[in-house]
């Protein structure tokens, strides 16, 4: 594999990590978020600042980055306690724009010039580059998938499913909407923070425009395309939306048009996504006698 494909795959792995986080919020807990890129950005900026100005290494900064992003996710997840659906969608878009402009206009965050000089990641004394960086991202992606799976199998995950389907009924069954919606926001945004940290150390230069609303939309597209609320859906979505532009490079000018067409076709013909309940792929590969609702 050449350097170019490895870079593309690394991007895809990072986006898959972030999309898995969005899937926890949107797919498992049913809370619409169109501002997920903000948390990807918060993770990236936090790691960049802690390693450049704070003097930490990637590894010592990472737990702080994840905690910090999750904590901000907790605070910014609070609108979900009062707002539903379209109102929440608009609010999260607003959050995305606010976070982006803070990065853009506050000098501490480098302003329009962005942040540069972010160190590479070293592991056991060697700098991780090319395929090794990709492997690192894949290991983190595996961890994120493992946590997602564990979450869907825990009582907390079931509580989120119940909230997604019927909040009043879930509440009458002992599920606190506050606790479990915020839990989903913390978990989902922490995953975005992890992805952001990886992104910052891959690019080694970041600027506010990397984390705009269009990225949030394409994150959402990945989740919807792959299968909202499924384990592997976000990964498949990230892979398809990452590879397609490369395959259709001659059509680069029509990329957004293509993405929109794919989304519309999905919504029309496979609303649950490629891996969702009742989808073509699922029917083809259904293993008999196995309940797959929570895979």
């Amino acid at each position: 594999m050449n350097d170019y494909s490895i870079t593309i795959l690394t991007f895809i792995a990072i986006q898959a990590i972030v999309a898995c986080g969005l899937n926890v919020i949107v797919g498992y807990a049913g809370q619409i978020s169109l501002g997920h890129a903000a948390f990807f950005g918060i993770g990236a900026y936090a790691s960049a600042l802690l390693t450049t100005k704070g003097g930490l290494t990637f590894w010592t900064a990472l737990p702080l980055v994840i905690l910090l992003t999750g904590a901000i996710g907790l605070v910014l997840g609070m609108p979900s306690l009062r707002l539903r659906e379209d109102f929440l969608a608009v609010t999260t878009i607003g959050i995305n724009f606010i976070v982006e402009s803070v990065f853009l206009y506050v000098p501490f965050f480098g302003g329009a010039l962005g942040l540069g000089g972010i160190p590479s990641i070293t592991l056991l004394g060697t700098r991780l580059r090319g395929p090794n960086f990709l492997y690192l991202c894949l290991v983190f992606l595996a961890a994120v998938l493992f946590i997602s799976r564990r979450f869907t199998r825990s009582w907390g995950g079931l509580a989120c499913f119940a909230l997604r389907e019927e909040e009043t009924a879930a509440s009458s069954m002992g599920v606190s909407p506050i606790r479990f919606k915020l839990l989903a926001f913390v978990l989902g945004t922490a995953m975005a923070g992890l992805g952001g940290a990886l992104y910052a150390h891959l690019m080694r230069f970041i600027s506010a425009t990397d984390f705009g609303f269009t990225l949030s939309v394409s994150m959402m597209s990945m989740v919807v395309l792959g299968g909202i609320g499924t384990l592997w859906g976000p990964v498949l979505g990230a892979l398809i939306l990452g590879v397609l532009p490369e395959v259709f490079r001659p059509l680069i000018d029509y990329r957004m048009l293509l993405n929109a067409a794919i989304l519309l076709l999905m919504i029309r013909f496979q609303p649950a996504g490629l891996l969702g309940e009742g989808s073509l792929l699922r029917r083809l590969f259904r293993r008999p006698g196995r309940d797959s609702a929570h895979e």
Partner: peptide, 10 residues
């Protein structure tokens, strides 16, 4: 108010 996409057992 069933949790519609979940099975009866779930």
């Amino acid at each position: 108010k069933p949790f519609s996409t979940l099975s009866v057992l779930n």
